[in-house]
Design a protein around this nucleic acid. Structure first.
Lengths: 176, 176
DNA sequence: CCTTTCATGTCAGTGACTGACATCAACGGT
DNA sequence: ACCGTTGATGTCAGTCACTGACATGAAAGG
């Protein structure tokens, strides 16, 4: 079903393909499509594990001596590692092209990212980090992740995704 | 029309009010509603000036000696100044409550913020800032803005919005 | 073999939007 | 004063995303 969706989105574009189209190509009815996915956009975002929990876990299990920012960045790096285990760069790039071309999908992606950010924020709060530091650290880590991801899929550097995270984290440190 | 929408959203919630409801209360038909706003969500986001241009202008006109991050933060501070000139804190808070309670509206808000971020990013690029520094600076400024905004509407500090921006910018500097 | 459960199909309905066409008032030129 | 244009609005029909209610059928477990 996800495959059917990706095919159709690349062939005709997101707007021109109806939920019924996807269902038909997958050999089911439109109704069952909506039983599996909350809405049409969600096809591209339904993953096995939620990124939120990954970050939260990584932050909860971080070493004692580290700063809040280091903790969150370690968290998103962990997400990066688990993400490359599931999708190849080419797959990610194709999916990114579709999302990039469709405002509705971009919105959803931003929402997921925001969800991950607040997950990180509350995980930091659980470890005693106060506001506004926790919020800013979480946002900054999200910035690192997005930057790293976009550089990874663009392929300009040839680095792996975790390496891109390291690169972006270093660039953030140099920012003044 | 915007007033009608805000009234109905606070009375019945976003999901329970149809576009026709808003139009009826405003004394027009549903069709003209959609001629003024691209979609139902956009009622709450249609402003006179686009935030994108404000940031871009502020960055383009920034002093020479300043760092990229200082430039963008000055840009979002400028946006903050122009924003308080249009909306009172109470108005902003009511609107924020509605948006907060509705995922669909949150998505749209994130999209607007992302648009402002990329505007800042390209404005930095025009001034010779390379990647990934430009992207990270833009994201960080967005983080500062969001943090500042949420603290401002929450009212915990009693500061004005630009002051909240300054506070958040300082907190970002202290982040390690 | 029976019952329960779970995934799916079917169907009708609501609401967000869109395109095509009609109306009508304001406006500028003659 | 008359008329053509323009722009904003109303009307209507249609598509598509999504939902609730009910039926069906296959598999699982006793």
């Amino acid at each position: 079903m996800l495959d059917a969706a990706i095919e159709l989105f690349t062939e005709k574009g997101y707007d021109k393909t109806t939920a019924g189209d996807i269902a038909a190509r997958a050999g089911v009815t439109e109704r069952t499509f909506f039983r599996h996915f909350a809405d049409k956009r969600e096809v591209l975002f339904a993953g096995p594990a939620s990124l939120d929990e990954m970050v939260a876990k990584a932050i909860a299990g971080a070493d004692e001596g580290t700063t809040p920012l280091q903790m969150v960045i370690a968290g998103v790096r962990q997400v990066a590692v688990e993400l490359v285990a599931v999708r190849s760069r080419e797959q990610a790039a194709q999916r990114a092209r579709i999302v990039e071309a469709t405002p509705a999908l971009r919105e959803r992606e931003l929402l997921k990212m925001a969800s991950m950010t607040t997950a990180a924020q509350t995980a930091l709060a659980e470890r005693g980090v106060g506001e506004p530091a926790a919020g800013l650290a979480a946002y900054s880590a999200a910035a690192v992740f997005q930057t790293a991801f976009s550089r990874w899929v663009s392929g300009v550097t040839g680095l792996t995704l975790p390496e891109c995270v390291d690169e972006a984290a270093a660039a953030l440190r140099d920012l003044r």
